[in-house]
Amino acid sequence: MNFDLAFKHWDLFAQGVWMTLHLTALSLFIGMMIAVPTAFAMLRGGIAGNVAHGYVYLFRGTPLIVQTYLLYYGLSQFEVIRDSWFWRPPSYLRKACVEDFLYWKICVSDFIPSLRSAWWCAVIAFSLNSGAYVAEILRGALKNTPKGELEAARAMGLTDKQVRKLIHLPSAIRRALPQYGNEVIFMLHGSSVASVITLQDILGTGRTINAKYYVAYEGFLSAAFLYLCITYILVFLFRAVERHYLKHLNIAEPSAKRGWFGRTVAVPAR
């Protein structure tokens, strides 16, 4: 084992961590935007409900790596797509750039999804995938909201829209928090699929190190260690968020003390 390699190439790994983190964060954000309307549509039924169910079924029913591969290598086979703006934004948007913005060159087209770029393919695939899983989590939480809570809200004179926005969704999100924390960690690990479509994320960097020095473990173990650290931080954050938002459910003894990760640990009676 030669772990000097990881230190020698810390800059590559730092770029990998950044790639993984902002890919995961952006996908989770867009996924959430998709999930909320999808979850409500599934509850309500009708045509929109059927479409939502179909979408969730499709994306939960197939592996993330297959979805990513189909989007990246599959769609690029069709000339119709390669000739369209989906493939590459029109040239006047590619030329509208700000040079030297924090030492980067940033163009308008950088903000428009294009199937030519591996980065956007990953974002699209991961967002749709995460959207389907989160929609299913939310649907369950929305459905299990106690009837009385909604009746009370209506009795207070809130409109349907207000009930959804102020009572139903916040209450459901609270209860979905632990499951959502799980989904965030799944997405973090799932984002390693990005390395098969040439993105240099944490795993991609590990594979490059392996291939460059003809070793089998060093790159993977360094990558595993980094994923472990990020997961540890995420678990810690979610515990804190849960502690805050699920305070009313915390039925620990008054004498309880805080353990690792902020868990409350009951102190045995003396």
Binding site: Y73, S76, Q77, R82, R116, S117, A118, T198
Partner: peptide, 11 residues
């Protein structure tokens, strides 16, 4: 093979 695919696709 993946290198060829992406050259053909123009990436």
């Amino acid at each position: 093979d993946e290198v060829y695919l992406d050259l053909a696709a123009g990436r």
